[in-house]
Write a protein that binds this DNA or RNA. Structure first.
Lengths: 254, 254
DNA sequence: AGGCATTTGTCCGTATGTATG
DNA sequence: CCATACATACGGACAAATGCC
């Protein structure tokens, strides 16, 4: 391998400290074979040479990643990757929140944090086809994969059409079951918009991210079988731990 | 509005300079009503108060955004947003590269940078269902929206099955037409995987991003109508300028 | 015109963080 | 560990341009 391949990844005077850029590069490189088969990173001096920085700077980066539980440094042996496998979250016509994870042999679950009756703001009203300030239920959830929080979500539901939704959701613990209890047997994903941003402090806290990490944000609208919008949700995924997979052809799993 | 709403977006001692975090926050906030109707930002003093930092720090952030052509500052008048429009790139069964942009009244085009015959590496071979080191064409393109580069892409094609592809592509300037010239009348999007990373220096240079910006990365496989993979492409979108929209139901436009 | 408030632009000094050797 | 250089962040003061009364 060339000795300064990674040097071009680093930009000085960018407002992002070199140690953080290197930490991000190492974190990104982990998934594409930076470590050898045993998960051992190159020695600090070699990394320093590859990135074109001082050894101290590489040490700062490694120190941050060790602190975040991504690397493990052993004196005299080397630095090793603690690799949590990256999960793939499928988006299809029949995307169901927790079902996707389970399909990969991982324990996926969704924790309902709160469900309140609020007035629909502009974006929610527009997405659900309701007038401004119409009563809606706002449900906050955290998605877990392998016992680690990997996503957090806020969803809105028409409180006039589904007056018992909040109660049913809290009791049954599942959107699909709550809809069924409200007399709606089936629904499909209508549209999905995907954006990407830096993690907010709330993201960092709730999903245990590192500051400067990236979140994938999806805005999804689900329709009933008559084409009326019934659910609008914004979900923030940890881009370090989740890939999104679009399934055009599959009908998805229940 | 509360006076310190945005303060929670900022994290000190994170390795990312405050001015860059604020620049990113402003950039993200532009699309969700940070500026008023005329595109004027709150004054520096008020932004400083909202973010909980010194006015000079806000000025550093604004200065960076002015330098990137996102804001325009006028002494005595205020600071104004230049580019509020974010493009939406549709992904559907019939996603075609440049067609999506044109649909929004923006001038969309794809520039072919290079097309070389190379040996398929592991991921390419797997995606196209070819043996390792099989001959493939590797095409690099840059996607333009409103005369600004918004994406860059590398695509691979089976050189054994489509020996004239490179020539036709360079001559016709379109993947769809090149396939047609090679006797393939139609193809559909089979799968799409979406990830998000920090921009590399190449991203910064080619798409004129700021260091620390975010790129959305899609890995797409197109199939012919018999279900055989014919194109594998990795595309990097500027997350500042592009949203991805998943169209489950639409067949897409040609 | 002048006077005034608002807002961006520029300068100073100082403390802390980052990076190198 | 130390010393050095530069970037970042803060606080204050004042200049310059704009707009409104």
């Amino acid at each position: 391998m060339a000795s300064e391949t990674l040097k071009s990844e680093i930009e000085r005077r960018s407002g992002v400290a070199l140690w953080r850029q290197i930490a991000d590069a190492i974190r990104a490189g982990i998934s594409s074979g930076l470590g050898d088969d045993s998960g051992k990173l190159p020695p600090e001096m070699e990394l320093a040479k590859q990135f074109g920085v001082n050894r101290h700077t590489v040490r700062s980066a490694i120190s941050a990643l060790v602190n975040d539980g991504i690397l493990r440094a052993e004196q005299g042996r080397g630095t090793f990757i603690i690799e949590p496998n990256r999960l793939t979250y499928p988006i299809s016509k029949r995307t169901r929140f927790s079902a996707g994870m389970a399909a990969q042999g991982t324990t996926g679950s969704t924790v309902l944090v709160s469900c309140d009756r609020v007035a629909a703001k502009h974006d929610v009203a527009e997405a659900l086809g309701l007038p401004l300030d119409a009563p809606v239920f706002s449900a906050r959830t955290v998605g877990m994969g392998d016992d680690i929080p990997v996503s957090r979500s806020t969803s809105w539901y028409d409180a006039a059409r589904f007056p018992d939704f909040a109660k049913q959701y809290q009791y049954l613990g599942s959107v699909t079951k709550a809809f069924a209890a409200c007399g709606l047997s089936d629904y499909v994903r209508h549209s999905t918009i995907i954006e990407a941003y830096h993690a907010t402090v709330d993201d960092v806290r709730i999903m245990r991210l590192t500051p400067g990490a990236i979140v994938l944000v999806t805005h999804a609208i689900n329709h009933d079988l008559k084409g009326r919008p019934i659910e609008y949700s914004k979900t923030r995924f940890s881009a370090d731990r989740i890939n999104l997979e679009i399934d055009m052809n599959e009908e998805g799993q229940r």
